[in-house]
Design a protein around this nucleic acid. Structure first.
Lengths: 245, 245
DNA sequence: GTCAAGACTTGATATTGATCAAGGAACCCG
DNA sequence: CGGGTTCCTTGATCAATATCAAGTCTTGAC
């Protein structure tokens, strides 16, 4: 990236960012936003499949996805990975380092992605004087916890069919929240990543997509998904605490 | 409980509490501790199987287990429950309310239990003037997130054998941390609860315990567990991020 | 444009762990 | 102390999903 491009990117402040209402700045006053903005680092974009951090790396910032997508995951000695979450534009990741000051999981991009870094020590200092920021951070942290809890329920109690339906509904509601179509979107992740997120085999993901298509509940072609029957998807999920994650 | 007993219990300050080094007060100075202590509510003990909060209840405090044990869980429409975590003395629960101000999961006691309530609005105010408290809360929240992540890896990628081994190691290390034996302890939860935590059937839990006993890895009688071969248990867990949860 | 590598799909078979069923042990209550 | 209830264990069978094995489609590199 050229110096000119870099400068241009840096100029996109939180205040001008279309995602600010989903992101850390939500609920802040103009003055507060300006103070926060001064600290935010905006790294350049990265390609797909680039690692952002890994276990043992120093935790120095929360990250916010601006464009593209990120997965966080753990691995077993044997190599299998468990995807902990997919992070779409406006969503935060990297909180796993808060316990020890070192990250405990991996974070990698799903596609060409740009993201902001919100330095932890700066945020900590601002928390002292900006109650709204403190509350927004608590809100985001609580959201992460609840998303993990919904994911635990999915992995522990749902059948493969229910898991895939939950997954589609979650992605759909998150696209909708950002102003995109809830029924027609492009999945940013591979079948393999979906399988690792849902704790099932890739082959099963493939078969289940086909089964949903055969029942005219969805139309799927590669990564393009069209939801034809949202009610049917909702009925498949017997989950009593389903919400946007 | 009589008034006299209640008063006596209230007098057990954080400073005098043997668990304070595991709990919220960790790392605070004497002066800070006194300020915090003034706000802490110490409800009386409750029996086993008592609900502490449920989804929709107002979130007004973090809770810290003093004696006994607590489980937090979600349920599906069909009734199955997924246990999100077991909380032993010195451990915190109730953070799930931070997102919306309402709890999202259930919390219930496993046995006769006493716990403290740490009012959220008071903690928030103290955070403004006590950086150490702020950091300790971040540490605890990060710990919760990491515990959930380890649990996700367990549910998504481990076999039933590995899950039970992970569970025993987790409980063992937590007893050890509190100064008790790591190899001989009484499980505070039922087989059913273990099954709901591990995402497997009760019958499977029973069979796996027997199998571990037949291999002379553990000795188990009702809820009394003796670990005979800790190395064997560790080897069963191919998890690369295993730590005390 | 062609080739190679990777991603995805589809089919056949295997296996883990669920479910169904029953009996035994501990515990609570009167 | 006795009887019922719940918890736990054990056995037999079944089903969901993993695994193994090809084969096809995409995509990117040269």
């Amino acid at each position: 990236m050229s110096q000119a491009q870099l400068v241009k990117q840096l100029k996109v402040s939180c205040e001008a960012c279309s995602l600010s209402e989903l992101c850390l700045p939500r609920g802040l006053t103009h003055d507060e936003l300006v103070k926060l903005d001064a600290y935010i680092e905006r790294p350049r974009s990265t390609d797909a499949n680039t690692q952002i951090f890994q276990p043992g790396d120093e935790f120095h910032a929360f990250y916010a996805v601006r464009t593209g997508g990120v997965k966080t995951y753990l691995t077993q000695k044997t190599g299998e990975q468990q995807i902990l979450g997919f992070h779409l534009p406006g969503e935060i990741f990297g909180l796993d380092g808060m316990e020890t000051g070192k990250h405990r999981c991996y974070a990698a991009t799903l596609e060409n992605t740009s993201y902001c870094a919100l330095p932890y020590d700066k945020l900590d200092g601002l928390c002292e004087v900006m109650p709204d920021l403190r509350h927004q951070i608590c809100h985001l942290v609580g959201h992460e916890l609840n998303a993990d809890h919904t994911h635990l329920l999915l992995l522990g109690q749902q059948t493969a069919h229910e898991r895939l339906a939950s997954f589609l509904l979650s992605i759909s509601s998150r696209f909708k929240r950002r102003g995109f179509s809830a029924t027609s979107f492009i999945l940013p992740m591979s079948r393999h990543d979906i399988a690792c997120y849902l704790g099932i085999a890739v082959e099963t993901v493939s078969r289940l997509f086909k089964s949903l298509q055969d029942k005219d509940i969805i139309q799927i072609n590669r990564k393009q998904v069209d939801i034809l029957d949202m009610d049917a998807l909702n009925e498949m999920v017997s989950n009593c605490s389903e919400e946007d994650v």
